[in-house]
Nucleic acid binder design. Structure first.
Lengths: 225, 225
DNA sequence: GCCACCGTAGTACCCGGGTACGACATCGCT
DNA sequence: AGCGATGTCGTACCCGGGTACTACGGTGGC
């Protein structure tokens, strides 16, 4: 049985959550808190398994309440809920030690399975937020794959399909030249440039010149200045 | 309609996935791949919305296949599935650009909602993995106000004029996202994206997004991968 | 209370970029 | 002599990107 504490300043919201949770035979609502301080106090008294925590509350907000609850050290997990998927809240909440972060417009089933996951020690983050977190931090994830060797100066395989001329064009694309500029500076017709560009995009599987610019940087054809 | 490509070396497994997906009226299975190379090739040909990618496959494994698919730059999302929730795989997969990482013992509904989330540009990570990721990285999340240690590498002067949101947008521009992609993935209207982009270009004296991409690389906002 | 800034959203318009064709000359290899 | 790869040039078409506005709610500073 999962003991839950609901912390939300809106009574109607609390009621909805309570109804939903009580309809499950593996969950009970221990009590309800209307602000952060109450949530902290009740958590200390009742030691629920999970606190369903709203972010926006008068007085002590959900983030700070989460910080104090997790700092206390007992095994109560905090699942933060918010109306808006503001990433500032997500970052702050997760930093504060929350085990999860869901948006209120989620499906009831998602909330329920989220509570169960959190209760068993797992963690959940709303997909829309996961996206932002990944975008921001995926690059920083530890690389333990052995394929992180030193880089030789040989031509990147992604560029081998290109002819010399095409690599030349790709280089100036990577420097931000427009087709017109390439044409005048290299004494070509614009149609010729377009032909080259088209072939480059096809051979490198780039959908537009932006991808080509990125490729130029990633392969080292163009170096950051 | 969500077009899905199934990549798994076990025929029985593929069959199961196909049955599950075809039972949904908003999903179709475009094709099946039995190894990584096939997955990459078929993705290029068929441009599915989502690739259901197994990690362990003979030849080119799921991680490397994911890397190549996402490197290609088209809008196909990769949802990685694995039997074991080994975090090495998860790290590698997410670093490779996967939009999600689920374990195979998940409930069918979880898989389906995961596919839908990924198709609309969101991201999903299995709760058991989210827990590990949070444990490892919650400390590294950007600080809001509280006193925090290491400085986040001083901002390049050319970017100081930008607001936080604008820098966020510039980052994804630097990753080659189109306006439409930015809109869907960040849950914005395309007009809003255009407004942001316009301001970014004005503030950074860039004549088009290409110059902005170059600037993103030169200032280190985006790093070569 | 007012105002500046920010993020969001909309409409209308123009233009460069990309695609899909076809065409021709040169060069090197067989 | 024939052929393929490469580089050059052309036309026609469509769409995404960029610009130029306007607008409005929220927040924070004064």
């Amino acid at each position: 049985m999962i003991n839950v504490l609901i912390a939300d300043d809106q009574p109607l919201q609390r009621f909805g959550f309570r109804m939903l949770l009580e309809s499950q035979d593996d969950m009970t609502v221990l009590s309800e808190a209307a602000n952060g301080s109450e949530a902290v106090r009740m958590t200390a008294q009742l030691t629920p398994d999970v606190v369903l925590m709203d972010v926006r509350m008068p007085g002590l907000d959900g983030i700070e309440a989460t910080r104090r609850i997790t700092a206390a050290g007992n095994r109560t997990r905090v699942l933060i809920l918010t109306t808006f998927d503001l990433d500032e809240y997500a970052y702050a909440g997760l930093r504060a030690g929350a085990s999860g972060f869901l948006v209120k417009d989620a499906q009831p089933e998602e909330l329920l399975s989220g509570i169960r996951a959190v209760a068993t020690g797992d963690a959940v983050v709303a997909p829309s937020l996961t996206r932002r977190l990944l975008d921001a931090y995926a690059h920083h994830l530890p690389a333990q794959s052995p394929s992180d060797g030193p880089e030789p100066t040989a031509l990147d395989p992604r560029l081998t399909a290109l002819t010399d001329r095409e690599r030349e064009i790709l280089t100036v694309i990577g420097q931000g030249w427009t087709n017109t500029e390439i044409a005048t500076r290299l004494h070509l017709a614009e149609s010729t440039v377009k032909t080259h560009v088209g072939r480059i995009l096809a051979k490198t599987d780039s959908r537009d010149r932006i991808q080509a610019v990125i490729l130029a940087y990633d392969t080292g054809l163009v170096k950051p200045s």
